[in-house]
Amino acid sequence: MSIQHFRVALIPFFAAFCLPVFAHPETLVKVKDAEDQLGARVGYIELDLNSGKILESFRPEERFPMMSTFKVLLCGAVLSRVDAGQEQLGRRIHYSQNDLVEYSPVTEKHLTDGMTVRELCSAAITMSDNTAANLLLTTIGGPKELTAFLHNMGDHVTRLDRWEPELNEAIPNDERDTTMPAAMATTLRKLLTGELLTLASRQQLIDWMEADKVAGPLLRSALPAGWFIADKSGAGERGSRGIIAALGPDGKPSRIVVIYTTGSQATMDERNRQIAEIGASLIKHW
């Protein structure tokens, strides 16, 4: 067993022997301040990774656009098919120029040779490549099948209805392509620590998230040296922004954090800054 596999296998073990965790309302004060600064709703939840206990939450059962955070769930569904012998990570998928959609920095470079399922998941999570996500959605049967996968996990809230990039439209009061912070946090925890996926697939999923290259201005910008984070960000229309993450000190994750916002007129930089400040408060009061 590799060191990384050992780390993920012992996530519940280490967490069980940690000192009790206590909620700190100071972080919620910052979440509410972010709402004021952005002029928009902000949803927040913080779960203990081992027990699933909610440590703090704000608007945990209000719907927010998922945006690209759905790509972690998508690759979880792909990995479940791999575990069941219905898919192979090494299978190569070929596609054409007509398949390319807006923001496809990886797939646009491989029109000639195609990409493997493993490479597509890596591109979808680490670079948020939209064509990679659409190609992977095709392998599982489309958005409705991802929703069905989530329902089978016990998540009857999260739903995907459309493809990239239309799913980022974020129309107010439109339930399409949305989740709730509580539902997303619980589902992410199941994917990373539950028995739904094999140990190898859980490790692969967290490795992809740990290698995320496009979430630097968010929670990662607030992390002290030595902290662990595996995350996936999302951005959408109407001032929408979000991030889902597993993080913790001492090089291992111990909490799940989900943050979503929508309806702001603020710039992307300002949305990023507010999420980073929430992260800084979380870490300060850990």
Rank of each mutant, 00 (worst) to 15 (best):
M1P: 00
S2R: 09
H5Y: 12
V8L: 14
A9R: 09
I11T: 07
I11V: 12
A15S: 15
A16G: 15
A16S: 15
F17I: 11
C18I: 01
C18G: 10
L19G: 14
P20V: 03
P20S: 08
P20Y: 03
V21P: 05
V21G: 08
F22A: 10
A23R: 05
A23E: 05
A23D: 05
H24T: 15
P25Y: 09
L28K: 09
K32R: 14
D33I: 14
A34Y: 06
A34S: 13
G39T: 09
A40M: 09
A40K: 03
R41M: 11
R41H: 15
R41L: 09
V42T: 06
V42D: 00
I45C: 13
E46I: 07
L47P: 00
L47D: 01
L47C: 09
L47E: 06
D48F: 03
D48S: 08
D48I: 04
N50S: 13
S51Q: 10
S51D: 15
S51G: 09
G52M: 06
G52A: 07
G52L: 05
K53C: 08
L55M: 15
E56Q: 11
E56D: 12
E56T: 12
E56C: 08
F58S: 10
P60N: 09
P60S: 13
E61Q: 14
E61M: 14
E62T: 11
P65N: 04
M67V: 10
M67N: 13
T69R: 00
T69K: 00
V72E: 01
V72K: 00
L73K: 01
L73F: 08
L74A: 06
L74R: 00
L74G: 02
L74I: 07
C75M: 06
C75H: 00
C75A: 10
C75G: 09
G76V: 05
G76L: 05
G76N: 01
G76K: 00
A77F: 10
L79P: 00
S80Q: 12
R81L: 09
V82A: 10
V82K: 06
V82E: 05
D83K: 04
A84M: 10
Q86C: 10
L89Y: 07
L89G: 06
L89S: 06
L89D: 05
L89Q: 05
G90V: 12
G90R: 10
I93T: 05
H94Q: 13
H94W: 13
H94Y: 14
Y95N: 01
S96H: 11
N98D: 11
D99F: 07
L100E: 04
L100H: 04
L100K: 05
Y103T: 05
P105C: 04
P105L: 06
V106D: 07
V106M: 12
V106R: 07
T107I: 05
T107S: 11
K109Y: 15
L111T: 13
L111H: 09
T112V: 13
T112A: 13
D113I: 07
M115T: 05
M115G: 02
V117N: 04
R118H: 15
R118S: 15
R118C: 13
E119Y: 03
E119C: 04
S122K: 13
S122N: 15
S122L: 15
A123Y: 04
A124T: 11
A124M: 07
I125S: 03
T126K: 07
S128N: 00
D129A: 00
D129F: 00
N130E: 01
T131H: 04
T131C: 08
T131E: 03
T131M: 05
A132L: 00
A132M: 00
A133F: 02
A133R: 00
N134D: 05
L135S: 04
T138P: 06
I140H: 04
I140D: 02
I140V: 09
G141C: 05
G141Y: 05
G142C: 04
G142T: 07
P143Q: 06
P143N: 04
K144S: 15
E145Y: 10
T147R: 11
A148F: 11
L150P: 01
H151A: 14
N152I: 09
M153Y: 08
G154V: 04
G154D: 08
V157Q: 14
T158S: 11
R159S: 08
L160Q: 07
L160E: 02
L160C: 11
R162W: 02
E164K: 01
E164V: 00
P165V: 09
E166N: 13
E166K: 12
E166D: 14
E166I: 13
I171L: 15
P172L: 12
P172C: 10
N173M: 15
D174A: 05
R176A: 08
R176P: 04
D177G: 03
D177F: 01
T179P: 00
P181N: 01
P181Q: 00
P181C: 08
P181R: 00
A185D: 00
T187E: 04
L188S: 06
R189H: 13
K190I: 09
L192C: 08
L192E: 02
T193H: 14
G194F: 09
E195A: 06
L196S: 15
L197H: 05
L197D: 03
T198P: 07
T198E: 11
L199V: 15
L199G: 15
R202G: 07
Q203Y: 09
Q203S: 13
Q204W: 06
L205E: 02
L205T: 03
D207T: 13
D207K: 12
W208Y: 06
M209C: 06
M209S: 02
E210Q: 12
A211Q: 14
D212V: 04
D212L: 02
K213F: 10
K213I: 11
V214Q: 07
A215Q: 05
P217Y: 08
L219T: 03
R220H: 04
L223N: 03
P224E: 06
A225Y: 13
A225S: 13
A225L: 12
G226M: 07
G226I: 03
W227A: 03
W227L: 01
I229R: 01
A230R: 02
A230D: 00
A230E: 01
D231W: 03
D231H: 04
S233L: 02
S233P: 05
G234T: 00
G234K: 00
G234W: 00
A235S: 08
A235R: 02
A235E: 03
E237I: 10
R238S: 11
R238F: 14
R238D: 07
G239N: 05
G239I: 01
G242P: 00
I243H: 02
I243Y: 06
I243F: 05
I243R: 00
I243G: 01
I244R: 00
I244C: 09
I244E: 01
A245W: 01
A246V: 13
L247G: 01
L247D: 00
L247E: 02
L247T: 06
L247V: 11
G248C: 02
P249S: 08
P249A: 08
D250S: 14
D250M: 12
S254I: 10
R255W: 01
I256E: 02
I256G: 02
I256A: 05
V257S: 03
V258N: 02
V258Y: 01
I259K: 00
I259F: 07
Y260S: 02
T261Y: 06
T262H: 14
G263K: 06
S264A: 09
Q265I: 13
Q265C: 10
Q265V: 12
Q265K: 15
T267C: 10
T267D: 14
M268E: 06
D269N: 12
R271T: 11
R271V: 10
N272P: 01
N272H: 04
N272D: 09
N272V: 04
Q274P: 05
Q274H: 12
Q274K: 12
Q274D: 04
I275F: 12
I275C: 05
E277V: 11
I278L: 10
G279I: 04
G279A: 11
G279W: 03
A280P: 01
S281K: 14
S281R: 13
I283W: 07
I283L: 10
K284L: 13
H285S: 10
H285V: 09
H285P: 02
H285E: 10
